[in-house]
Amino acid sequence: MTTPAIAANRLRKSYGDKAVLDGVDLTVAEGTVFSLLGPNGAGKTTTVKILSTLISPGPDSGEIRVAGHDLATDPQAVRAAIGVTGQFSAVDGLITGEENMLLMADLHHLPRREGRRVAADLLERFDLVAAAKKPASTYSGGMKRRLDIAMTLVGDPRIIFLDEPTTGLDPRSRHNMWQIIRGLVADGVTVFLTTQYLEEADQLADRIAVLNDGGIAAEGTAEELKRLIPGGHVRLRFTDPAAYRGAAAALGAAVRDEEALALNVPSDGGQRDLHSILDRLHAASVEADELTVHTPDLDDVFFALTGGGVPQQPQQSEQPTEAVR
């Protein structure tokens, strides 16, 4: 077996007496995409900052090796092997996109001619040629993120950390970013990705770890994680409280969501199952205003692991677009 790209033991970090990371173990195999998933404040960014040598780990952490080098004794060797694109754009807004690229080439000590070639290639690959002579501060969010990743790639890093690379991007830019990440993996690069979008982890990652409250709540492939929680359901929503109560009485096994006037009926989503639910509603003479079939996805895992059950959680109603897919 080859050395893992990242092997962190008992990763700890606290600010004051607040523990942000409380003994996190991570192993990332070379050439894979590893996604760290978690709600805001779970410690995702802190993990990336420590693994990328930006901040030091807590003194009681165990051994941490990145690209085979010990983070504590040989941080420069780690830095030479990694590339980092943080959550907030790490571009120099005062100079042009091209100048940003050439700055990176200089800092990687590429010969001038090669630096120019690498910069031009990457600007081309990330569709930034037209904007290359404009100051980076004038770029849109998606362009900045592309420039950011292009800069990260100048040194040809073997391990890339991407901290919420698609947060704040529009859907098109997000899909572009996914294509970019898939391209990196095809080149054999190891990607450590944090995200709060479950779909993103599902789409891209070989392995997913759910970080919650400073610890790993679960880890595995997307399929393994989905198997951790019970199956899907049919969600019925009502506007009329009387109809809601009638349906609740007719469908005994439903989980009630009083606030939203919604019922979640455990179901495999098959035709027979749906038929039986509809028949029972029909028999009770109630009509649902909305019916959605919900197959288990990472959302369920996420909400199950990061606090409480699925439907009762208020955050469910705050993120309707996430839940109905």
């Binding site: 060797a77 571009v91 120099d92």
Partner: peptide, 13 residues
């Protein structure tokens, strides 16, 4: 305050 300083800190410079 610029993100690029964080980038410099993670580079082997």
């Amino acid at each position: 305050a610029e993100g690029i300083i964080a980038r410099f800190r993670t580079m082997a410079i």
